[in-house]
Design a protein around this nucleic acid. Sequence first.
DNA 1: TATGAATGAGATTTCATTCAT
DNA 2: TATGAATGAAATCTCATTCAT
Lengths: 194, 194, 194, 194
Amino acid sequence: MSPRGESTKQKLFEATLRLATEKGLAGLTVDEIAAAAGVAKGTVYYNFGSKDGLIDALLRYGVGQLAERLRAHAAEPDPVAALESLVDTGLEFIAGHRGFSQILVSELWRTPGQWQETLSLLREDIVSIVKEQLQRVADAGRLPPGIEVPTAAAGLFGTLLVVALDWQVFQPQRSRAEVREGIMLLVRGVARQD
Amino acid sequence: MSPRGESTKQKLFEATLRLATEKGLAGLTVDEIAAAAGVAKGTVYYNFGSKDGLIDALLRYGVGQLAERLRAHAAEPDPVAALESLVDTGLEFIAGHRGFSQILVSELWRTPGQWQETLSLLREDIVSIVKEQLQRVADAGRLPPGIEVPTAAAGLFGTLLVVALDWQVFQPQRSRAEVREGIMLLVRGVARQD
Amino acid sequence: MSPRGESTKQKLFEATLRLATEKGLAGLTVDEIAAAAGVAKGTVYYNFGSKDGLIDALLRYGVGQLAERLRAHAAEPDPVAALESLVDTGLEFIAGHRGFSQILVSELWRTPGQWQETLSLLREDIVSIVKEQLQRVADAGRLPPGIEVPTAAAGLFGTLLVVALDWQVFQPQRSRAEVREGIMLLVRGVARQD
Amino acid sequence: MSPRGESTKQKLFEATLRLATEKGLAGLTVDEIAAAAGVAKGTVYYNFGSKDGLIDALLRYGVGQLAERLRAHAAEPDPVAALESLVDTGLEFIAGHRGFSQILVSELWRTPGQWQETLSLLREDIVSIVKEQLQRVADAGRLPPGIEVPTAAAGLFGTLLVVALDWQVFQPQRSRAEVREGIMLLVRGVARQD
DNA sequence: TATGAATGAGATTTCATTCAT
DNA sequence: TATGAATGAAATCTCATTCAT
């Protein structure tokens, strides 16, 4: 709550995200994180109790950031355009936080994984934002029959994550617009053509 | 090569897959693997040289199995039906080998991952099978303009993996047919309607 | 000196004794003590300078209390009865301050113990009270030959401590009178029968 | 079970006992213990799982040694002489294993202490040996009325421990025979005079 | 007089790997 | 072909102490 404490946690989150992009979350050491954040090792333990505690808090923080950005693009009047904006924002975030996205994708579907409880809740947060946008498309009568909004939302979120990572890792020469168009082809295939 | 040696390796593969479902590859220790397989720790080193050697062999083995099954369904004359069969086979494999699939999704896009080199090659194997089928659809003139086969193949593979895992973990009550239909709606959105 | 300061020190003493019963002095952390006392960690350092300072002050405080009570029973005219009263008072104190007694028994004979210097002095305080009473018995000609007062005093103190703790921990159903009688059998064996 | 494993544990026990006499058990580090035993730090963890595991095993080992020695002196035909031999053996052991005895005295009456479960059982072992000898004295009709054997055995054990430690720490100039005689005065006061 | 975030030295623990059998 | 005790580098974690407020 104190400004000092908050900024310390912030510094640690940011340092961890930075390092995770370079080396992956699994390979990070508390020493590295503390050094990158410019604090003592003990400070990590003072603030988060354990390395796992830091990761857990980081997941909440990162998903919070992602959710915030996705929600910021809900204003678009045309529902399909809004969805496109959401996809683009998602791609931008993932490209900018690859290490974080990597941990999401690798922990999200782990059966009893260490952070599964946390992640299940966080997944719901994101999926519900996607769901809302898809619902707007459905309300506009532009979803073909047979599409269930909750299922499609979960699928779209997973696809977005995985396609974005594949882009970053295996096809870095493509532009974000290209990748967005690739995903939108699927979405437009689903959303009824005008 | 001897049956005894093979069964030792097999036991180690199976134990590793069983454990990986619960704890992920990075969290596995050689002690645990050996104990779960019912062999001594030294046996892992005798057979695979190192922990990485074991994982590497396991990945090749698993992807080999998946590729074999996917190829077996290439005979279907109608290209869209063949794609559907491929999707169904993929779903079946993932449902039956969740631990392995979890590993794939965890490690495939890990940037400096220890097994990234191996996995890049293996990813190519699978993606090229998908590509072949999509190419047949394209050759039949049933792909809308703007779709690039290589990109779509990579996307379809990732989506398949992620949607299947989401099904297993978060929506286990759905039937494989339902999930397959969900994915085919996307594919049919892409493949030109008959 | 101020009532507030006193109560802070008192709170810290009490919290430390409470915790020491469970975990011993060595296993206590300043964090735990402060939390149990309901004050901030810095307050311990403000009031006592260091963890050792707190323990040191606590030992002096506790031994002071014990010595005060033991001295209060020196008035008894019959020297053997006075010794019995002293034993009874000792048992009462130990039963009522088990945590403190546990500390004494743990630390008193620890060779390079951190608080050994303090404890040696404090031990002398108590032993000298016992010695005084035994000397009165000796002066009354009721100690058999071969008994050295200083040795017997040290032995009686240790026995009292240990028997009282054994009573509290392993034989709580016995009454204080019973335990006192057990010790007095030894003492009366030593003190010449009337 | 293997000779190598046993001798490693033995080496660790002996090194720990040696160090405990010098520095007390609480202040020992695994580094020191491993170095003193001439093995790698990991070897401690391989053999005992944790520092606590080592201490726990050491307590069993030490008490086993003490019990063995005490039992070896049960042959003496005269029961009071047998008791004297037992006391002497106890004093010798404690003098030779001060660090170990220190931990016994400091943990034995700790309420929920870390090793209390182990120690309660071990205490029973020792006390029952003392009980046996006292029972022989009682059977010979040489215990005065009012002495309960179990109570007296527990008391004698505690007194022996505490008097021996007090001798070692505060009165090292006394001989073992002197200290033994001091304790025997109590015992003979209790045992009926011939 | 009191606070509590931050520290860092030093402790415990982990675990892939080796090697004699 | 297999074993498992031993290793040690490197990780995680603890905690008495400091200090700005």
